[in-house]
Each structure stands twice: as C-alpha cells, then as structure tokens.
Design a protein around this nucleic acid. Structure first.
Length: 562
DNA sequence: GCCGTTTTCGGCCCGACTGTTTTCAGTCG
C-alpha cells in the first residue's frame, strides 16, 4: 500500500518541479490533484483496473502510474527530477519563497540547495537581483531558520488546546463579537499545518495588537487591518483574520476549507450566476452564517469534518454524524495491573462521571513484558478483582477484558480457553509492525475471524509523525470485519487516530462496525475522546455503526453474539 | 493535465499582504 504513498509523493514532486520550471499552473494543479487522489485512495492503486475512473486522473497520469507499477520506474518523473538540482525542492519549503523566486535564485545566483542559499545571502550575491530588496533577503534569512526545525505537521492533540487557549485570551479584548478557529483544525484533521483564527470586532487594531504581542510570539510575519500572521516560539504559525460581523459565515466557510471543497462551492455558485468569496455570496443577504450560504446554494449544511471533496457535494442526504454525546461506553482502558495509572475503581469513577453505562478493563497480555502484561495466572486474578468491583459499584457495568496481542503470525497471546472467560477481547498488534503488507493482512484477518475477538485495537499500529505502522489490505480487512461482526477500533489517542479517516470512510461504506475508545492509561486520557469523534465524523461515522453508542443491553448482546 | 446538465476545445477560484515598485509581481491560504 505504500505504493500509493510513493506515487503520491512523486506526483507532488513533479508538480513542484513544473512550477519551478514555469510550466502552466493548470498542469501543476493537475499533478497535485492526482497526488491527492492517490493519498485518499484506500485500496492499493495496483488493484484498480481502470485508473482513469479515479477523479482527477486522466489518460496521461494513468499511463505514468501503470508504467511505474510495471517497471518500478517512471520515466517522466526521472526526467523532471534530473532537470533541476534536487536541493531546490528544499529551497521551495522556505516560507516566502515560491517557484518564481526559487527559479530566479537558481538561474541568477547559482543557488541549488539550502546551503548555497545561505552562502548567497552571506556573500551579498542576492543584493543586486531585481525585486530582491533588503527586506526580502532579511525575511528569507529568518525563514531559513525554520526549515530545519519545522518539518512535521502538528498533531491535533497539540494544536487544538493551543488554539483554544489563544482564543480564550483574545476573547477578553474589548469589542469582540465573534471568534473561532477555522482551517484543518476545525475540520478535525489528524495533523495541522497552521492555526487559523477568525474574528469579528468593533476594535480591529486592539485585537491585532493583542494578537501580535501574545507572549509566545517569536516573529510577526504580517500585520494588517484584516490579516495578521505570527510564528510562535514552538514554530507553529498562527493566522488571524478580522471580518465584518455580517460576513462572518462566509469567512468561516472560506477559511475552514478545504481548498478543494471551496473550489467546488465557488464553481457551483458561478453555475447559479452567483459569486462566492471570503466575504459574501452575491447577490444575497445570507453571508452571516454558513447554514444560510449552504441553503442559498441549494445544499444541506455540511459539517466541517466532511468538507474534503470526498463526495459530500454530490450527496442528497448527509448522514447524522456521531457526536461526543452519543458515546455511552469506553471499551479499551488500562489499570495499574499493567501499565495504567488508575485502579479498577478509579477507572469506573471516571467513566461514571462521563455518563457511561459500561467501562471495559483491558490490560495488556503476557507478551507485553515492558508494559507489565499479565501472565495467565495474573489475568485470572484480575478477572476476579474486576467481577468484585462490578458487584460493588451499581452505577456502571465493568467488563472484564484484555487487550490481547495479535502475535506476528496472527495467533493471540492467550489460549482460547482463557479468552473465553473474558467479557470482551480487544486484539491489537504491538510488535512486528514493519512486516510486509501481505503478512500484515494475513495476521489481522486471522484475528478478525477469531470467534472470541470483539474489537481490533489500533489496527495498523501507526504513531503519527513517528511510525508508519502496518500497511494491510484495508478493503480485505473491512470485508472480513463486516462478515464476522468484529468491530474495528478508532483509537482516539491523538498519537494514534487509528483507523485513520480515509480507511474509516471505507469501513463505514463497507458495512463494518466501528468502536471509538480512548485507550486511557491516566484520567486525562479520557479527554482524547474528542479526537476520536472528529476522526469518526471525518469518516462519515453514524452512532448506529459505533458499538460505543449502543444501549447497555444491545452492547451486552453484541458482546455475546458468538 | 483534466474535464463536460451549454463545451472533445477552451476553460480552469479568489483576494490580502509584502516588498518593490510608481502600478504590480510574487506568495500565501
């Protein structure tokens, strides 16, 4: 499956090179579009008979992909890559440098990578270039410092609390009527490039002053009447837009994106002889709320999480997406018996406080030595302890479970006889996470088909920005999960979010059940649930398809289905 | 390079800010 990722990255690279070479922007866009389509693809691209059936992929790109699949090489890619110094792709990542300036630096100042750019600045070679004044060079020099440090996008678990605290501090400014975050953060993406904040105020200057002088600001990149841009000491970029209150809806829609969603919306407006921009939908008086704008365009309100041009604009009826309030149980949590920091009773109290009817105790199995995984004898004692706590606490059902390792070959970490004594079995891969796609598929299928397994925990084992994890044949897993009534987990921890949004949409479409769990080790981990919910919504998940939303009796019946 | 509820050719989303200009190109989102 990494073929998809490899190809996507090649098309992204081709788009960038074409830009630097000054080719038509439409051609550049076309390549970017193909790259994005490949990123969104759930099935292995090699398994698709007609590549041009993928929207955005035409004859030319299809041929390139086919050649790569056949030979492991793409002639056009190699040719493009050899046509410019490869270091220029790094130079493109410098904020403020786009294709035109990079080409100028290359052709007129012999810049071929970050190092020669640094040197060119230092020896004054850039000073004489046209449209390259003192300030521009200064800005490039400052931005260079961030290229090395800020390679990764930020996890939503970091970005969202940060955005909330910024909003909280700005909210106290006089004259504020509206303030919200937009962008990929509002869409609930697993990682965020920068934070977009949108506000209406009667006192714009006070707000932008307050924004640009927040105590964690490192650099003010732009400061205007309606737009400010800063970089925080952490490297995170934060943009503030100020708009008129009557146009807040149009602006929120615009800055929430995604870009692809917006483009389709604007095209739709044009077809209706209207014009949509970041301020208003013309001719119309309905620019103050997103709801009114969608209605004016003849569309239902589309929740931010699904605005990705993945079918939401072609859909007559948007399903009722899952919310935090729909969750009635957490089926994957740890106690001090393995590597958690809560007792069984503490776990139960936190779950009661959240209004759950059921909590599952699922400590690690014996192979997880470093996590103090339970040997069979300790598991038997633990089951007893859980039953005792369950009998003592009326307000909630405490299930005796285990997070059982799915070993490398797909067998489980306990004998069936022992597993049968548990109320719930969450089977998860923890080790051997770099095995081949076919091995991973066979391994996970074996667990899905096991009659005593209820949920597959964090199915790929990926860690965002750190570990790629398994790359199984996702459609095959989904089909098996649907057939055997085994739920696939959305692990809500913001390091994991596994299954990820795109896989999830395929799972929902494929009729599989899902389960959103926090994998809590400490009380604070329960708060991560919201990231699981956002991911679920990005995958068009409804409460009916999520076992954590079942009533108590329905959940118990589902657990005893075999 | 891709695409078609006016099209197989002729389009392809839109505006703010910066820096360098003296009316605008480049970058960004």
């Amino acid at each position: 499956m990494s073929t998809n990722t490899d190809l996507a990255s090649m098309f992204h690279t081709m788009a960038t090179i074409l830009e630097i070479k000054g080719e038509s922007g439409f051609k550049v866009n076309a390549n970017t579009k193909v790259a994005r389509a490949l990123e969104d693809l759930v099935e292995d691209v090699a398994s698709i008979p007609d590549l041009t059936s993928i929207p955005g992929v035409g004859k030319s790109s299809a041929t390139k992909i086919q050649n790569y699949l056949k030979t492991g090489q793409m002639i056009e890619f190699e040719a493009l890559r050899n046509s410019i110094p490869s270091g220029l792709l790094d130079v493109m990542r410098v904020q403020g440098l786009g294709p035109k300036k990079v080409r100028q630096l290359w052709q007129e100042a012999d810049v071929i990578d970050i190092a020669t750019l640094r040197k060119a600045i230092d020896d004054g070679r850039l000073d004489t270039l046209p449209r390259m004044g003192k300030k521009t060079i200064e800005n490039i020099s400052e931005a260079l410092a961030f290229v090395e440090t800020s390679g990764n996008r930020t996890r939503i678990g970091i970005a969202m609390p940060l955005a909330e605290s910024i909003i909280q501090s700005l909210q106290e400014q006089p004259g504020i009527t509206n303030i919200a975050f937009a962008g990929s953060l509002r869409r609930g993406k697993e990682t965020i490039g920068d934070i977009d904040i949108l506000a209406s105020t009667e006192n714009p200057m006070a707000l932008s002053d307050a924004f640009c002088t927040m105590n964690n600001v490192a650099i003010v990149q732009a400061k205007g009447e309606t737009k400010c841009s800063v970089r925080l000491e952490s490297g995170m970029q934060v943009d503030l837009r100020v708009v008129d209150k009557s146009k807040f809806g149009a602006a929120l829609l615009y800055f929430t994106g995604s870009k692809e969603h917006n483009i389709i919306l604007r095209e739709r407006a044009i077809k209706q002889h209207k014009k949509l921009n970041e301020y208003e939908l013309e001719p119309s008086n309905t620019s103050d709320t997103e709801e009114a704008i969608y209605a004016d365009l003849g569309l239902p309100f589309l929740p931010p999480e699904i605005r990705e041009n993945r079918g939401e604009l072609l859909c007559d009826q948007i399903p009722n997406l899952i919310t935090l309030q729909d969750i009635r149980s957490d089926l994957h949590c740890h106690t001090t018996a393995s590597d958690g920091h809560m007792s069984i009773e503490e776990l139960a109290m936190h779950a009661i406080a959240r209004g759950y009817h059921t909590i599952a105790v699922t400590d690690h199995s014996q192979s997880q030595g470093q996590a103090n995984g339970l040997k069979p004898k300790r598991l038997l004692q633990h089951i007893e302890a859980i039953h005792t706590a369950n009998a003592a606490i009326d307000a909630i059902t405490i299930l005796a479970g285990s997070e059982v390792d799915i070993l490398q070959d797909g067998t489980l970490d306990y004998e069936d006889e022992l597993l049968a004594k548990l109320d719930i079995v969450v089977a998860s891969p923890h080790a051997a996470l770099s095995q081949s796609s076919s091995e991973a598929t066979a391994r996970l299928l074996k667990a899905i088909e096991h009659p005593l397994v209820h949920i597959i925990g964090h199915p790929t084992g990926r860690i965002i920005n750190k570990r790629k994890g398994l790359e199984p044949d996702i459609p095959a897993l989904i089909a098996a999960a649907a057939q055997h009534n085994t739920a696939l987990e959305i692990n809500a921890n913001s390091y994991r979010l596994d299954l990820r949004d795109t896989h999830l949409k395929a799972a929902v479409d494929g009729g599989a059940m899902l389960s959103i769990n926090t994998d809590s080790h400490r009380p604070v981990d329960f708060e991560q649930l919201r990231y699981g919910i956002l991911t679920g919504r990005r995958g068009w998940l409804t409460p009916e398809k999520c076992v954590n939303c079942f009533t108590h009796d329905k959940l118990i019946a589902w657990l005893r289905r075999n």
